[in-house]
């Protein structure tokens, strides 16, 4: 079975290729018709850039791409410029349907989260990066990669876990709880060396999360680990960390 698995994965990959190739067809720029009296085009993607061109009602613009809250468009006679998201959202497609400008993700029902954290693990400085996928509004799966840097040793941790958000619709502050498992690797250059460099860990976690603005959020997490060692006692290090994240 183990030998079959790579073969299966290969077959899967081969099957996926046609679908990916199909998706690679070059896209035509989206054409939007101005329905408000006018739309302002600026020299750059920022609030302070000067207005360089104005497109009047009834004219259409080609949308080339977006960067943050700004869309680069081409006017009918050729000049290009940047239009603010909320202005472009008032335009229409050529068939009269509303412009395909997606609204900001809703914090209570967002799907993905990508963040970085600073913290303390086992009295060591901790640097962490994590990705979080919402299975439902209140249940998330989380993958965390972290490095704890101490004076004696240096530890890498990779963990996966599930986390429950008690009241996801509480925007500014909502408690969370979860549990998970992972691997800890101890990198130590000076003796005595640990009995095992790689150990399995499990953890329980309690935390808080909240919305900051637009796509930003924060998390404060406490974790209590059990490190399964070959020694007589399992180690139980504690961890605190504060994360800033972007959600989609």
């Amino acid at each position: 079975m183990r030998r079959l698995l790579p073969l299966l994965l290969w077959v899967q990959a081969m099957l996926a290729i046609p679908a990916l190739v199909e998706a690679k067809v070059p896209r035509k720029p989206v054409e939007l018709v101005v329905t408000e009296p006018y739309v302002e085009m600026r020299a750059g993607p920022g609030r302070g850039y000067p207005v360089t061109y104005v497109v009047g009602r009834g004219d259409s613009v080609e949308v080339l791409f977006s960067r943050t809250d700004w869309f680069k468009v081409r006017a009918p006679r050729g000049p290009e410029g940047w239009v603010r998201r909320d202005e472009l959202a008032k335009t229409q497609l050529t068939d009269g349907s509303p412009a395909p400008i997606p609204p900001y993700p809703d914090f209570a029902t967002h799907t993905w989260e990508l963040g970085a954290a600073y913290g303390v693990y086992n009295h060591q400085n901790l640097v962490a990066a994590y990705v979080d996928y919402a299975i439902t509004d209140s249940l998330d799966a989380e993958l965390t990669l972290q490095q704890a840097l101490g004076t004696i040793d240096n530890r890498y941790l990779a963990t996966v876990g599930l986390r429950h958000t008690f009241i996801p619709e509480w925007k500014w502050l909502s408690p969370t709880a979860g549990l998970g498992t992972g691997v800890q690797y101890i990198d130590k250059s000076t003796p005595p060396q640990p009995l095992d460099k790689t150990n399995q860990v499990a953890y329980v976690t309690l935390g808080l999360r909240g919305f900051i603005t637009k796509k930003f959020m924060w998390r404060l997490d406490w974790r209590n680990y059990v490190v399964f060692t070959k020694e007589n006692d399992n180690k139980e290090p504690e961890e605190w960390k504060f994360a800033l994240a972007v959600f989609f």
Partner: peptide, 25 residues
Amino acid sequence: MEIRLGSVLLIAALTSGCSWFHRGA
């Protein structure tokens, strides 16, 4: 146990493969 797990994996992999195939066509 491993064989049963293996067959479950195999079925899951094949069905998802079929769905990919269907997507491509």
